[in-house]
């Protein structure tokens, strides 16, 4: 079972919540929980987990077409079939090229070509690394190749490689509401949306709520940095009958610990209680608790 932690706005506390829940849920589920860092452009979960050790790493590739200019007749059929404007053909210059940053590896051009001029090669898009940790069943991190724009493909590969219905998996999503987020939350049993009580937090939360309603995925909200900003976000939750899982009060001390990477070093009693009750609520919501009892 998968639970995703997402937010429209960046910097609301996805990583904080994901890492803490991984820690707390490990206690409840006899370590049968994994943390999967799907924020492949800037994976940072591991920064906060002491003594994590890399146990495996593998590269992920996408197939990108290459055009053989000797065989190409410059008929433009492949270019017309390409939905993503990735192929440029100029007959009078004998020019035929694929822009790998625009290519989505759909393979349509290879099918379109009647002259066997297109072959596909492996283009590296990132790595997937597995880490063992002193609690839980490990962290698996996707890390995008610098310069690549194939986030969604890498997240898809990461989900495929880690697929294990027996295990509770926490997916730390990238910020926003675009394709990489849709890919991360698709198939999740539940989504935790982390927001902050500011106009930016509220606006981006609204977008994410719309997305999850479209995808028909159940979700609840954690308000982080409570005490800042205003009450507008709570009114939005009330009006739309969205569950408020809990609130994390704004604390400068907490921010200092975060910036030192010491998220799990000194968990205050207040935080311990908050994450324990959140973990219990999640087990209840997703039906895991009932299954185990």
């Amino acid at each position: 079972m998968r639970i995703a932690i997402a937010s429209g706005k960046g910097g609301t506390g996805k990583t904080t919540v994901a890492v803490n829940l991984y820690y707390q849920l490990s206690k409840y589920l006899e370590n049968q929980v994994q943390l999967i860092d799907c924020d492949v452009e800037e994976p940072n979960d591991l920064l906060f987990i002491p003594k994590a050790e890399k146990s495996n790493t593998n590269k992920v590739y996408s197939l990108v077409p290459k055009i053989d200019r000797e065989k190409c007749t410059f008929c433009k059929k492949c270019s017309e079939w390409c939905e993503f404007n990735a192929i440029s053909i100029v007959k009078n210059l004998k020019f035929a090229e694929v822009n790998k940053d625009l290519c989505h590896s759909c393979g349509a051009c290879s099918v379109a070509c009647n002259f066997d001029a297109i072959s596909e090669y492996q283009n590296p898009i990132g790595t997937i690394s597995e880490y063992t940790t002193t609690f839980g069943s490990g962290v698996i991190e996707g890390r995008l190749e610098i310069g690549s724009s194939m986030q969604t493909s890498l997240i898809r590969a990461l989900k495929k490689q880690t697929n294990n219905p027996e295990m509770l998996q926490l997916l730390d999503a990238p910020p926003g509401t675009s394709c990489p987020v849709v890919e991360t939350v698709s198939g999740a049993a539940y989504v935790i949306l982390v927001t902050e009580p500011t106009p930016f937090g509220e606006y981006d939360l609204m977008l994410t709520v719309e997305l999850l309603n479209d995808l028909k995925i159940p979700f609840g909200v954690i308000v982080n940095k409570a005490g800042l900003g205003n009450h507008s976000v709570y009114e939005f939750l009330n009006k739309n009958k969205i569950e408020l899982i809990g609130e994390i009060p704004f604390s400068k001390e907490f921010a200092v610990n975060y910036s030192r990477g010491a998220l799990l070093d000194q968990i205050s009693e207040e935080m311990e209680i908050f994450y324990q009750s959140t973990a219990e609520r999640l087990l209840e919501l997703t039906g895991i608790r009932k299954l185990n009892n």
Binding site: N85, N92, L102
Partner: peptide
């Protein structure tokens, strides 16, 4: 015809410029 495409407008209009000579 590429002014409203999602991606690749610059690539395709450059191609158009080359085809026009």
């Amino acid at each position: 015809s590429f002014k409203n495409v999602n991606g690749g407008a610059g690539t395709k209009t450059s191609e158009m410029a080359a085809e026009l000579g």
